[in-house]
Design a protein around this nucleic acid. Structure first.
Lengths: 136, 136
DNA sequence: TCCTACAATGGACAAGGTCCAAGTCAAGAA
DNA sequence: TTCTTGACTTGGACCTTGTCCATTGTAGGA
């Protein structure tokens, strides 16, 4: 994740302790926290960090393309730092656990021109749902 | 949509004017209203219908499998009555318009066993995003 | 070290949705 | 037809998620 901190600094980000902590919380594989979870974890290291700062920082990371926003269920959005490795999501309908997956095939190519209705299609998300081993 | 009313009655639904109006609002092709839009349209025919009843009724229709809930953007959920005809969605990133689409291919078959992590996968949603003709 | 523009804070506010106690009514029973 | 009853509806309080803004703090360049 120090890569991320370097990249951000290179883009002219002012490096504050709050931003550093948020970036560190988002380090790791298969991390899909809600904004609230990010805030709770960040607050363990920096108790006075505010909710607004976490929302601001997450929003900036998303618009810089460093983090992906995942709307899994109409409840809280989740934030996925694995933005530089294209992938889709597999979600447990019972406990909400999320895994990154890499299906074969190219869903973009599967959408014929006559099904595009004049849209310029630029992005596809595939969401698989089911029950995880523990919930089944 | 009278089919729907019949099916619901067959399942033991008590038929009230509120439920009838909600079901009627959801009649048609390419209908993807938010709960609030359903409420507004229902209220044109039945002014005293309450928000809670609309939410209850939509929730019941979803759990009966008659309507699909679509979380397009982390804002309000949308309700899609086209539940008996499998399809996916194409969404304009600018104006939010939604179209039903029918891509080729089978994304479920594209997820190899070693990418399923012990899940029993039962459902796939594919969401295409881009700009519609008017917004491009 | 000092400045200052950018960032953080916290509290108010808004949207979307859920819950609940009380009142209403659809539909089966008599 | 009328009665009965439990399912349904209502409206308002409340919760969760997220945004906004005026004020205060501070990173990093001069």
């Amino acid at each position: 994740m120090s890569d991320l901190l370097e990249r951000l600094r290179g883009r002219g980000w002012r490096m504050t302790s709050q931003r550093r902590v948020v970036a560190e919380v988002l380090d790791g594989e298969h991390v899909h926290y809600t904004a609230d979870e990010v805030h709770a974890r960040a607050a363990q290291r920096l108790p006075e960090i505010s909710r607004a700062t976490v929302y601001n920082t997450l929003g900036e990371l998303v618009s810089l393309g460093e983090v992906i926003e995942v709307a899994t269920d109409g409840r809280a959005k989740r934030y996925d730092p694995n933005a530089h490795h294209p992938h889709h999501h597999l979600i447990c309908s019972s406990c909400g656990m999320i895994r990154d997956v890499h299906p074969a095939g190219d869903p973009l190519a599967d959408l014929p021109a006559e099904e595009r209705f004049g849209f310029t299609v630029s992005q596809v998300e595939v969401t698989y749902r089911g029950l995880c081993g523990a919930c089944a």
